[in-house]
Design a protein around this nucleic acid. Sequence first.
RNA 1: CGGGGUGUGGCGCAGCUGAUAGCGCGCUCGGUUUGGGACCGAGAGGUCGAAGGUUUGAGUCCUUUCACCCCGACCA
Length: 411
Amino acid sequence: MRVSQLFTKTLKDAPADEVAKNAQLLIRAGFVYKEMAGVYAYLPLGIRVIENIKQIVREEMNSINSNELIMTGLQRREVWEKTGRWSDDVVDVWFKTRLKDDTELGMGWSHEEPIVEMLKQYVKSYKDLPISLYQFQTKLRNELRAKSGIMRGREFVMKDMYSFHTSAEELQAYYDQVIEAYKRVYDRLGIGEDTYVTFASGGAFTKFSHEFQTITDAGEDIIYLHRGKNIAINEEVIDDAIKELGISRDELEKVKTAETGNIFNFGSQKAEEMGLDFVSADDKQHPVFMGSYGIGITRAMGVIAEKFSDEKGLVWPVNIAPYKVYLVSIGNVTEQATELYEKLQASGVTVLFDDRDERPGAKFADAELIGLPYRITISERLIEQGKLEFTYRNSGETELLTLDELLAKIS
RNA sequence: CGGGGUGUGGCGCAGCUGAUAGCGCGCUCGGUUUGGGACCGAGAGGUCGAAGGUUUGAGUCCUUUCACCCCGACCA
């Protein structure tokens, strides 16, 4: 992509109404546009980050035999009434609307009930199980207060996965597999080291659920960490958890985190409430066991923007950067720069080519704000030496390399 | 939802005790520049969030309302 063709432009000043670092940087660099409080559009650079995150999640969910689908944004009232969760007193984030004939509809804030309802048509026998399904969906939640930029919006993208099993044991085994898959996701996103599987308040079925909490000052949660034992506990269940786990409070370190994932074991409760049964080998009806697993895609992007940034701008991890290379041409080297741009792309390297007629300083500043992992500079002076300047965004370290040396490093 | 704050060209801001709106960035045109956000010159762009009121006169005062931000509460 050529910068001259990108419709967004960088801003020197962040809008005054944004305080969250992630939103300030993402807006300034042209990744997102704020439509209203808690509602952001994802621009060309932003959507490439989203897609990269989604692809990592997709690969890991596929690796545990989950099937991707996409459910509906509009939902039926009666489906939610079966579990009592249509009520605004029970679920306070509903957006609701009506058809022209006055039929009441809900706008999907979760898809747990609808997927159970859907599966009633497909699950009849133990032979149909287990099943795991996931989707990337825009969730709509009427949050009382949106905040923290893209980390807590009223409209956001979430990967939600649901698994269905014949027994509690089978569900638990899958649940454990999901934990491992999630760890791989966070590792690949570059936040694995700071992301902890955390004991949190459970549902009706289990004492605790698990959250994936990522350490960041921009977070809203407090967790207690035992680094030695690799145990993390959400503040909301600290007293219970300490008793259960037999540890003392003063062994624990208090840290601020953002919840980047959450998994629930529903047991058979949801299926019982909604009538999702299967027939076992001995011809008896049983409720299906169910788990629910979420990863906030846009929230993960916000957390990464918060964690990987400095006073100059964003610093994307290689795996999710919108492009790998920011190519800066200095002076009258259009021909050589274009040739390099094409060679890099032919080698499978994604490139944002700053072909504008701007001064070097402006290009460097934008390169740093946008935060691609590598910057390659080409100029008359460098061409004479037969070298290219190669700069790492994270360390700022620069080296002079030939094209072959450079390609060896990044492709 | 409780408390606090802010709304003035695309963005950041100024506008004192009321007198027909200004600066920086960005944008357009011309010229000079070209390794760290260039410079000179000439321009375009605003019903001052909205509605109502007070006044000869309102960005400025009053009332209502909307939006946005922060703290709190909330967050299967």
